[in-house]
Amino acid sequence: MSGRYIVQKIAQAIVTIIAIVLLNFLLFRMMPGSPERILLRNPYLTQEKVEQVRADWGLDKPLFPDQFVGYVKATAAGDLGYSLQFRGQSVVDVIESHFWPTMLLLIPAEVIAIIVGLTAGSYAGWRRGSGGDKVASGTSLILYSMPYFVIGMPLIIIFAAGLGWFPTSGMTTPGLSSASFLTQLFDFLRHLVLPLAAISLGLIGGYSIIMRSAIIETRSEDYVTTARAKGLKDRRVLRQHAFPNAMLPMVTIIAIQLGYVVAGAITAEVVFNWPGLGTLTVDALETRDYPVLQGVFLLLSVTVVVANLGADLIYGRLDPRVRS
């Protein structure tokens, strides 16, 4: 079974990615505004110059088949074209230089949020109605409802501008590139604390709320009652019977969330001036840098598909029922 299940899921993912690639092409060509006019924000623009640029960028050729075939070929070869905003830089380079900062921020944020969120959620769910639950659920709801920048701005005002413990923004202090590795690492960590806190807090709310309801659901399951009837200690029932079962939906949610969080951290990145994919997306949108937008969209959608695939596969391992 498992071989076929895996092949089937992977095939689905590949088909989805192909569809995304095609949609990406259409979407950006349906957008208003001609690329050559964007490329040449120039009051002295002559018709000749426009024509020349159109030819340079292959925009004078028909959309189908010329432009389309060129696009598919190039994308398949990993060539996403050149950025309009960062003149001359390839889209792949531009995206890569923004990808790692995002990962450096999001991976620790996810890890912290999963640990704290699941812990707080299961505690709240297990002790439903207790004082601790009320505090945890209330806090989670507040955090969950706040966008990252709303969490981020007070952090900046209190801990950066007010107390001066951390820098207000950015990922590094400019000009430290010649300093020792340790100094640079400390500098990076200082810059990391506030954005990391903002994103973790935002994610904790969501995870904790979902975990709480998952635990509440399992509480009333027969196997939990059975475990209780066996006379097992309360904490053991939670840890060995309720928690693993509640984790099933969580695995899917976390995996899917991983896909979306790359895009979802946009506001946090913007507030903290973190040079990641979020700020890149905002920049590209503002400057109508279609090749970069196209590349970012491709990356984000592929991330979501791959995350979903991961969820399916992990779920398949965790829960034998879905494999059959």
């Binding site: 900046i156 501008a161 001066g164 923004s169 507030v271 700020t279």
Partner: peptide, 22 residues
């Protein structure tokens, strides 16, 4: 000795950075 031009995505954090002396 050096000049660093730092880029901010929005004005609020930049104003906070100015207040903080960064």
């Amino acid at each position: 000795d050096e000049i660093v031009i730092q880029f901010f995505k929005s004005a609020d954090p930049m104003i906070q950075a100015l207040k903080a002396g960064e």
